[in-house]
């Protein structure tokens, strides 16, 4: 796998300050993503996936506390940049995002063509006509009929709006796009269409994707790599093929076993209990109290072990 690494994340941390204490939403995340590949981040709600996306794009809320680590994008540490440089050079230039429920966060008083062209106008010194032309091209690419350009967001269906949001994230042709639950509110056929679209874009523009979702089945349509997050940490990372056939971490096992499948009749499993609170997370392995394979060593924080190109944060593989 001598591919060029596009993104390398080292010990990324993001804590939020609340009146009850610090929420350790992203607690020391490490992974790397080669060029033109898609990594799918899966995990339960509250495990920190969205916070990690926000940390990567530096879209921090007002109560952000600790924010540290190294993020190397093409070898350049973007965490070391100040906010203005980050805004000019990284956000929506090299990296963009389709946030959760993007289709509901389109500006209701702007026509969609203006919305999609706006990132271009903001980040490059291009004329409005040029930006609109790019928008038109992008619309065609994502499959929105051209006569929809002049419409407002509320005049489009959910699937169309999601495509507009994707077009917005691609119009500056970034190298990496982060998508947060891009298909969760959509119908099955529309989901399939969006996944087809993403596959096409990956091929045509050589874009890399980080796709955050809890819908593992849909995610498998595009996953080259799978990253499993639990309680603010990455508990498993590896290539998709080996993950889906043989997950390593006990949590990944249980997660895969709880997914209903159309084409097989295996018994469904579920995980009892709840994920731990991210304020003062427990010491030791954070999954220990729900784990069916726990043993004595689990009361200590497990190391991240590399097995044959995959990594797993579990004592079982030490």
């Amino acid at each position: 796998m001598a591919e060029k690494t596009l993104l390398r994340v080292e010990d990324l941390k993001l804590y939020f300050q609340t009146s009850h204490g610090d929420v350790q939403a992203v607690d020391g995340v490490n992974f790397s993503l080669p060029e033109n590949k898609a990594v799918v981040v899966i995990g339960e709600s509250g495990c920190g996936k969205t916070s990690m996306a926000k940390a990567l794009l530096r879209l921090l809320p007002r109560n952000a506390g600790t924010y540290s680590g190294k993020v190397l994008l093409n070898g350049v540490d973007i965490m070391a940049m100040d906010d203005e440089q980050y805004r000019k050079d990284v956000r929506w230039v090299k990296m963009s995002m389709v946030p959760q429920a993007a289709m509901n966060s389109l500006n209701p008083v702007m026509r969609v063509k203006d919305q999609v062209s706006e990132p271009m106008i903001v980040h490059s010194a291009v004329s409005k006509e040029f930006a609109l032309e790019q928008a038109r091209i992008m619309f065609q690419r994502v499959g929105v009929p051209v006569d929809f350009l002049n419409r407002y967001a509320f005049e489009l269906s959910g699937g169309m709006r999601q495509r507009v949001a994707i077009a917005m994230s691609l119009v500056t042709v970034p190298e990496l796009v982060i998508l947060d639950e891009p298909t969760s509110a959509l119908d099955v056929l529309t989901q399939a269409n969006i996944m087809n679209l993403l596959k096409g874009i990956k091929k045509e523009f050589a874009t890399s994707f980080i796709l955050i979702t809890h819908d593992v089945a849909t995610a498998s349509e595009i996953a080259d790599y799978v990253e499993v997050m639990y309680a603010g940490q990455i508990v498993e990372f590896g290539d998709a093929y080996r993950f889906f056939t043989e997950p390593l971490h006990p949590y990944s096992e249980k997660l895969m076993a709880s997914i209903p499948r159309l084409r097989s009749t295996s018994k469904l499993d579920f995980i009892t209990g709840q994920p731990p609170s991210l304020i003062n997370p427990p010491t030791g392995c954070r999954f220990a109290d729900r784990c069916h394979k726990r043993f004595a060593k689990c009361s200590e924080e497990p190391p991240t072990v590399n097995i044959d190109g995959r990594s797993v944060k579990c004592w079982l593989y030490q």
Binding site: V188, Q191, N193, N196, A240, F244, T245, L262, S264
Partner: peptide
């Protein structure tokens, strides 16, 4: 048929093909 083919199971082979959507 369209609904069934659009409903994925978690399978790494899905990456290789495009889904058939009406």
């Amino acid at each position: 048929l369209a609904l069934l083919s659009a409903t994925s199971d978690p399978d790494a082979k899905n990456v290789e093909k495009f889904q058939d959507v009406p």
